[in-house]
Amino acid sequence: MSKIRDSHSQRYRVFGTALAVIIYIGLLAPLVVTVPMAFGPANTLAFPPQDYSLDLFKIFFFTSGWRGPLFESIKIALAAMAIAMLTGVPAGYWIARHNFVGKRLVTGVIMSPFVVPTVVAALGLYLCFSYAGLSGTMISLVLGHVTVALPFVVLMIIAGVVKLDPNLEFGAELMGAGPIRMFVTVVLPQLIPSLVSSALFAFLISFDEVVISSFLAGPNTITLPVKMFGALQWEVSPVIAAVSSFLMAVSLLVCIVAIALRRGAPLEGER
């Protein structure tokens, strides 16, 4: 940015870059470490592994103890994603484009999971669902995950809508399209990048969710993160390396798609 090229500022810049590189390594090291271990043998947990195999992935994908929770998580994440998208996309559009009575209140409640500690939300949801007689059901987990996925969807849709040209929407309405027709034919096609990335992030949030799930899960609704959390608390088995690499691959895929679509990438993330 500054055009000066004297040795002092040069050295200063090198120092800053060196610090940044150290921090990047510190951020990525824990992720990278798990990958070679995932291809290690099934009986010992050592870094680097002595020999390489796919045994851990076989255990992960083909024993019911891990495969069941994996499928449970996928089902719940798909359902939570669908609900968050169906409710969050229209709401995000309306919040971005209109002023209405109670807008601050509604937006505040929808965004509240960003500031309410997850444990507090989890306990509240647990108390609620026990009261409603839904303890341990899949519905309770899906709804619990929706509470954390919805604010992200709404935020990303608002960010996407703000960048659109409102004149196209006025034009469509002047030509006689009703609000829903206008939304479907004018707004949604332009929003596709935001829609894809917010759906992927909604899926990922639910798929990785652990605190709310561990409060709400019953014996028949153990998700992959709940299973993994339990395994980490009691005995660290080598399979966890394979599960970790798998989770990381899913995250990497979502991040790459979101960056490729750019417009929808959440530059302010919070978990």
Partner: peptide, 13 residues
């Protein structure tokens, strides 16, 4: 990537 990777993965690592 670290932002969106499960906290369990990091704890394990």
């Amino acid at each position: 990537l670290p932002l969106w990777t499960s906290i369990l993965v990091k704890c394990f690592a």
